[in-house]
Write a protein that binds this DNA or RNA. Structure first.
Length: 563
RNA sequence: GCCCUCGUAGUUCAAUGGAUAGAACAGGACUCUUCUAAGGUCUUGAUGUAGGUCCGAUUCCUACCGAGGGCACCA
């Protein structure tokens, strides 16, 4: 960013345009041979080529730019390799784990809701998406200086608990519940829906049971509490594996005491009306179905609880932003919610729904009710088992095999989820989930391990550590230039992730850096070259290692030093 | 029926409105007495259709086609 900013200022000084505008125009050419920055001159006059020629004469090049060249309508700038190397490698060397860290969000709070699994249901791969995207955004925004509050908005209230209470009364088994709580609850939940097809009156029974629960029936509450505790225990096990933490586990039930005042607030603002026996906020004017405050039997619904949660968060945290990482199938719900908040006088752009596409299966839609889910547990187990096997084949002498197998297996799953634009649906495929070659998490981790290996060897065989005091003029190869440019671009990529709420930009950047480094690795031997070249390259290797590590950490992955 | 999202090589994905649309996988050919072959090198191959805006469209607009999701008492 600093390079781009400074270059923009130099260009601005030679034109009528502001530095901000120039910076927006500046781009990175599609081909490295064309340069490192390109300024398109279309807006400078009717003959962009001539304008580029004129601009070339006028602009004072900053020291890190070696030359400028006119190519068609573009004025292209080429890094001075030694300057680029010195600035970038020195910065990475000094900032270490903090390279890329910024203070854009100083003093600004963000509430980030993500993961939010449903109590009494297994943790499926559907919830994995919200968890890994949310976790990555949490880390990136924190790295950029924002104060984050992560909220796991557990689905721990609602009609589904009426169903569970009914099902448990009919078919529940205490021993089975204690042995495999989530499994047992799923079984009776699936059975409930199966039997309800034949006996629709079960649905009424469930609504009645939920009503009793919401009215505070003691026996129901005790059972609910038990279901919640047992499920949460299971979820925490996954969060430990994935290394995800939450600042609060305030689920839907937490907002129960606030529902009455929330409903009253809507009534005071004259937003609530009664329709078909239910209390709603009519949204016809905006071409949306109503937001429901009270069902016709008087009980609450997720709309009510989300509304109460929104007000609570504003009051309690005073954030500049509330972000919901929830699948795109709930898009309409959030549009309704945000519209009602706006009608209630809340600033409009305070809330953002970061949506993502659904997992798709060859067999069709996944449904907990029908019991055809792929459990996260199964996915993780398979990935770790495969990682174990590959380690046995490729590096049987490795220390801490089990630890590395976990890091690599879990990393493969996380990266597969984070490497594509979140808005797209994901076609579930075991083959892709369990691939360790090509554009995968293990490929990035492997590249990191390779860099570590070089550094170890230099230390061991040449007693040579990494020093920032090197002759930067030794950098002159295309492979080195490519790596350096990607290292320098890392902070910008983090900003882009934050601006778009899209982690895949970071994942893609790490792939590009890994590819560039692996090309460098084959073309440019580090050890056994001339001493000054070796020192320079060691510093470069160290920087790659550091940036890959920082990037993987921000994605929520581990960076093993050997694998 | 209405609304939203997505359509890019055989497959899975990239590409702030810009230059010759970039990878990976699968297939074929190479590459480990030299820093980890989970790697590298070479090779075939793509913007759903029809219009429009623009100096310039994979990107923006309209229609259509295809896939997915949603449309008040589930979350």
């Amino acid at each position: 960013m600093r390079f781009q900013e400074e270059l923009a200022e130099r260009i601005a000084a030679a034109t009528q345009l502001s530095a901000e505008k120039i910076a927006a125009f500046l781009e990175i050419p599609p081909d490295k041979k064309l340069g490192d920055f390109a300024f398109p001159c279309f807006s400078l006059g009717k003959n962009p080529h001539e304008a580029a020629e004129q601009l070339k004469e006028k602009v004072q090049l900053p020291p890190f730019i070696a030359k400028a060249a006119v190519i068609g309508p573009y004025l292209n700038f080429f890094f001075s390799l030694p300057h680029l190397a010195e600035a970038t490698l020195t910065e990475v060397y000094q900032q270490v784990d903090f390279y890329g860290k910024q203070d854009l969000g100083k003093g600004k709070k963000i509430v980030l809701e993500f993961s939010s699994p449903n109590i009494a249901k297994p943790f499926g791969i559907g919830h994995l998406r919200s968890t890994v995207i949310g976790n990555c955004l949490y880390k990136v925004f924190s790295f950029l200086g924002y104060a984050l509050i992560s909220v796991n908005h557990l689905g721990d209230w609602g009609t589904q608990f009426g169903k569970l209470l009914v099902a448990y009364k009919k078919w529940g088994n205490k021993a089975a519940l204690e042995r495999e709580p989530v499994q047992h609850l799923l079984e009776i939940y699936v059975r409930f829906h199966k039997e309800a097809e034949q006996h629709p009156e079960l649905e009424d029974e469930a609504r009645e049971a939920f009503k009793k629960l919401e009215e505070g029936d003691k026996a129901s509450l005790e059972l609910w509490e038990l279901f919640r505790e047992l499920s949460l225990e299971e979820f925490r096990r996954f969060y430990r594996i994935l290394d995800v933490e939450f600042d609060t586990y305030h689920g839907e039930a937490f907002y129960n005491p606030l529902l009455d005042e929330t409903v009253k607030k809507m009534q005071h603002k004259d937003l609530a009306t009664i329709s078909e026996g239910a209390l709603i906020v009519d949204l016809q004017k905006w071409n949306m179905p109503p937001l429901m405050l009270r069902k016709s039997d008087g009980t609450s619904i997720y709309h009510t609880r989300d509304l109460a949660a929104a007000f609570y968060r504003l009051r309690h945290y005073k954030p500049i932003k509330v972000i919901y990482v929830v699948g795109s199938e709930q898009k309409l719900h959030f549009q309704q919610l945000f519209k009602v908040l706006e009608l209630a006088g809340v600033k409009k752009d305070l809330f953002t729904h970061v949506d993502f596409g659904l997992f798709r299966f060859p067999e069709g839609k996944m449904s907990t009710r029908k019991g055809n889910v792929i459990f996260l547990e199964e996915v993780l187990d398979k990935a770790v088992a495969l990682a174990r096997k590959v380690i046995e084949e490729k590096n049987p002498a490795l220390q801490q095999k089990e630890e590395v197998a976990k890091q690599v297996g879990v990393g493969a799953i996380l990266f597969a989820d984070l490497s594509a634009d979140r808005v797209r649906d994901v076609e579930f495929s075991w083959e892709k989930m369990l691939s360790f070659e090509g554009e995968t998490g293990p490929y990035v981790q492997y590249t990191h391990a390779r860099a570590c290996s070089i550094l170890r060897k230099a230390q061991k065989e040449h007693n040579l550590g990494v020093s920032p005091l090197v002759n930067f003029a030794t950098f002159n190869l295309e492979e080195e230039r490519a790596v350096l440019a990607l290292l320098a671009g890392f902070p910008d990529v983090l900003q882009k992730v934050a601006e778009t709420y899209k982690p895949h930009h970071l994942a893609q950047h790490l792939i590009a850096l890994s590819q560039a480094f692996n090309e460098f690795y084959h073309k440019c031997p580090v050890i056994s070259e001339q001493m000054h070249t070796m020192k320079g390259r060691l510093l470069l290797v160290q920087s790659v290692r550091q940036v890959l590590k920082n990037g993987l950490q921000l994605l929520g992955m581990k960076a093993p030093e050997e694998m």
